[in-house]
């Protein structure tokens, strides 16, 4: 998720010199589809199902964009990108946006020349241990062996955490996530650390997932956000407000089920959201029923969360930080008015 970016910032320095800033929305309309850079395979975020259809929360976000622009969630093409090539692909206009579990950091937002359009998923680094080890807090992990993936900030966060708490540990580092979980399973290490969303996915690869538990301590902030290139504010606004629309829809209880009924609602904020009052969609360069399109075809934020990573999926990740602000979480969208 968070690889070294030195090489790419170098490459991008060349890139930004020549890139012209044509209107992305016009390109998309002329092309008839949105080009969406996703992960090549990350459970719950972007991965092909048995029939070859892309599924996941990152994928559904791009579908929502296609629904808003074209009233057709299938008018989006997914380009699986590796952590290494994702930024170059966005900069070289291979894709219109990245929706690829990318952590929002200051250097990516500024030096790499991207704009992050709000947080789709608040992730954090956590620890997985065997229940048999009888550990209840990460602070008890002194003198343990920890398995992790190389070349990610996971490794750095781990070192920071143990050092600042004066604990000793031995890191066992592997190249791919698959190797890490296999090493943990074979008993090569006591602790497995990566982002919590991924721990849930990797845990399913163990023969007895219920024998393992995630410790309550979260040792880093990983706000995963979709991003676009600098220099096209209209497209940036559309991506940003598509996410806000999905959050607002959940807040006002507009879901795929309740949509028809809520269209008759007398509440002014719902009327504004669904484009019955005002012309907020047109102000964005879309149509006024843009939110109706998003909810009808893809659903609100709560629905895509539940379907892809929550209770409705195999991962069964707790909403946690991703609850709406009025339910004790961090997900908060500015109002549409």
């Amino acid at each position: 998720m968070k690889r070294s970016t030195v090489l790419f910032s170098l490459a991008l320095t060349f890139a930004s010199a020549g890139a012209a800033n044509a209107a992305t929305l016009d390109d998309i309309k002329a092309r008839g589809s949105i080009l969406c850079g996703v992960s090549g395979g990350l459970a719950g975020f972007a991965q092909p199902d048995d029939k070859g259809n892309w599924t996941g929360i990152d994928v559904d976000f791009c579908r929502a964009l296609a629904a808003a622009v074209f009233n057709d969630p299938t008018k989006v093409k997914f380009l699986p990108l590796t952590a290494k090539d994702r930024f170059t692909a966005l900069q070289s206009r291979e894709v219109d946006l990245l929706s690829r579990n990318t952590t929002w950091t200051s250097s990516r937002d500024t030096q790499l020349g991207f704009n992050f359009a709000g947080v789709v998923y608040y992730d954090a680094q956590g620890f997985l241990v065997r229940k048999a080890a009888k550990v209840s807090s990460a602070l008890e992990l002194s003198n343990t062996t920890v398995c992790t993936q190389s070349g990610t900030t996971t490794q750095l966060n781990l070192a920071d955490y143990f050092r600042s708490n004066n604990m000793k540990y031995e890191a066992v580092v592997f190249n791919t996530a698959d190797e890490v979980i296999k090493a943990y399973e074979s008993g090569r290490c006591d602790v497995f650390t990566t982002d919590v969303s991924q721990i849930y996915a990797e845990r399913l690869k163990l023969s007895k997932p219920d024998d393992h538990m995630i410790l309550p301590e979260l040792i880093s902030k990983e706000p995963l956000a979709p991003l676009v290139r600098h220099g096209d504010d209209q497209w940036f606004d559309i991506v940003k407000w598509t996410l806000f629309a999905m959050l607002n829809a959940e807040e006002y209880d507009v879901s795929q089920k309740t949509l028809e009924q809520r269209l008759k609602s007398e509440r002014p904020d719902v009327k504004r959201l669904l484009g019955i009052e005002g012309n907020y969609g047109e102000q964005l360069g879309l149509t006024n029923d843009w939110v109706v399109r998003i909810v009808r075809h893809v659903g609100n934020y709560g629905e895509i969360f539940d379907r892809n990573v929550g209770e409705g999926s195999r991962l069964k990740i707790d909403r946690g930080l991703n609850k709406l602000w009025n339910k004790g979480g961090l997900q908060y969208a500015p109002p549409i008015r």
Partner: peptide
Amino acid sequence: VRAAFSDPNWSSPTTL
């Protein structure tokens, strides 16, 4: 093949 490993529908110790 590697992309398919991440499918939670098929996650199991021997899938890899």
